[in-house]
Design a protein around this nucleic acid. Structure first.
Lengths: 343, 343
DNA sequence: CTTGACTCCCAAAACGTTTTGGATGAGGCT
DNA sequence: AGCCTCATCCAAAACGTTTTGGGAGTCAAG
């Protein structure tokens, strides 16, 4: 196979070989109108033949754009990721690429805070924007980026006084509805297994559950908070199941926790007596026993949405125009069908 | 919270504010010996106070290094890759970062080939090295990068005549051993559900199975090839189960295919009659019914290994010194325990 | 012929860093 | 004094692009 020979390194060489100036070659390739059609074509052909590509670093320096966007990878508990996280990243990267930007992944180095990392990227002008995942209610990364006036989009809201671009699921409504669903099915002791309340998603999900419980005039103390992991869910469930007012149903902040809850239920009574619902629609949920009923954020091609918001944030659109709150839909499987009065 | 005020943009301003030359400030910060200790300290303090970070694009241009490594994301069937792929990426990115490199993810844009993408990255000097996953036996990306003399590491071997750096699992031995294990357990009709044979991993796994079958003097035509997906595995299993010499055990090229095989078995006879083993140790395998026995590549912190190989490839070490073949270990769960003589 | 408009091209500056190749001055030695 | 060494510092070049601000030349109108 012929893969194309040596590559003409730069504009200078290309210009020389054509007997033109660097300026003209550059402008010809960029499609400016002040280059004659014939010259443009000649340049274009020569460039194609030589396999010329502009040096990215040089363009970046001159244009003062890094042509890069960083996405933070949470290293902390709860493992990585929203199920379709990699799909999302992939879609995001692809759409960014069509605008000439690349996506760099930025895990938090050992012994460094997420804030330090942001600082490195922002102050070193290594990227044009940042994509933050796993927001906290009071998120120092958000505060920092706002103080720098740096473009960013978060996956998840915050309680920041200043608006910022985000994409998030409507966790309040999702958990509110899920709780009401249990209530309609006759459940009265509906528990909530919550994640750490400094995370926005965990807090807002709890609020949805709590609001529904109050509306139904049910107590809001059937509640356990743990790390957003399988182990956390397991422990939360054990503590709830040993209470005298043992719940007949459990609304879990995440699928990962819900899977831990199912394990606890199997150990305690074979898993047949308590209804469970999770959130995230992890693929694994279809394979648990019973198959895990759950919730998922609506909207397809989330990666594209993130990319679009990022580009618009870079372009300077105001934050208010860059906020997407997606509805939550119920995923109907088996684990939520236990009767409200258990043995 | 105080997040640090405005940032001194560049060396020039920093130098001016100190009454020093740009050269001296630059060299002071880089720790050169021809700057007096007192000056170095003064510069260092001023830089810290101002929150100065060198402009990445400028350094990259000057040093002729992109400080970036790209990893290709396969968009094609079989979903996205290796099981703990995101963990691997995260570890790799973290260790690259400690050497000053960032990892960019490079999904294949719509309507572009993986080769085009490599070309863009390489000829535009956008990256210093590439990490290729999902190698084919005859891989055009590898050939291209070799022709350019560009540093890269693959996840998976190829049949390239020229050596290149890689990390791979010893699929031959893994499948050889798994097949012999079935033979020892009394199985005689041991089938192989294979992936597309142009992928190296799929080919070498088939060869492992085939070699074992020949050693045991068993026929090597109990074989079906399909896409490396759940659906592919499902279809392959159906075709095998309808044969007169119906297998009593099936060695599957991937866990994803194995999960499809389990589904087919459940549909055909409740899933109790045929032994199955997969490869990859997908987390989901622990939740299938029966729990999927599988294989996994040994070695921890693969991300670190990839990062290290990439750095050494960039440093110019010869390919022969940059090849890691990891042993495959068996993951003992339930799906491989069916009796060799089924109903 | 002059003027202005228009087309096509280009020299030079700029982006911010690292590196090259000295310059300067102090001090020691002969 | 003259010479060498050493410790500090710096001006200028270089990296390869994009952009600024014209400069020729042509042509039509005045």
């Amino acid at each position: 196979m012929r893969l194309g020979g040596h590559v003409l390194a730069n504009l200078k060489q290309l210009a020389q070989s054509l007997g033109l100036s660097i300026t003209t070659v550059s402008r010809a390739l960029d499609g400016y109108a002040d280059v004659s059609a014939s010259t443009r074509q000649r340049v274009q052909e020569a460039a194609d033949k030589a396999g010329y590509r502009p040096n990215a670093s040089a363009r970046r320096l001159r244009k003062q754009r890094a042509e890069l966007v960083a996405v933070t990878l949470p290293s902390e508990p709860g493992h990585i990721g929203p199920p379709h996280f990699l799909d999302m990243l992939s879609g995001c990267a692809e759409h960014l690429a069509s605008a000439g930007l690349n996506l760099v992944i930025a895990p938090v180095p050992h012994g460094e805070s997420e804030l330090d990392m942001c600082r490195r990227f922002v102050d070193g002008r290594r990227v044009d924007a940042m994509l933050l995942v796993r927001t906290k209610r009071d998120d120092e990364r958000v505060e920092f980026l706002q103080s720098r006036g740096f473009p960013f989009v978060t996956n998840g809201r915050t309680e920041s006084a200043i608006q910022h671009p985000f994409i998030d699921g409507d966790g309040f409504s999702g958990f509110h509805n899920a709780t009401l669903r249990f209530h309609r099915a006759g459940h009265r002791r509906i528990a909530h297994v919550a994640g750490p309340q400094d995370y926005y998603f965990a807090h807002v999900r709890r609020q949805g559950w709590e609001a529904a419980m109050r509306e139904c005039e049910l107590p809001v103390d059937l509640y356990a908070e743990q790390a957003p992991t399988e182990q956390g869910g397991y422990e939360a469930a054990l503590s709830l199941l040993h209470r005298p007012d043992r719940p007949t149903s459990i609304v879990c902040a995440t699928d990962e926790m819900a899977i831990g809850v199912l394990r606890a239920l199997r150990e305690v009574d074979g898993g047949q007596s308590v209804s469970v619902v999770g959130h995230d629609d992890l693929p694994i949920g279809a394979f648990t026993s019973p198959a895990l009923s759950t919730m998922r954020m609506t909207g397809e091609n989330l990666g594209r949405s993130f990319a679009s918001l990022l580009l618009r944030a870079i372009a300077g659109e105001p934050a208010e125009a860059l906020q997407e709150l997606h509805a939550i839909e119920f995923v109907d499987r088996d684990s939520h069908r236990r009767p409200p009065r258990a043995a």
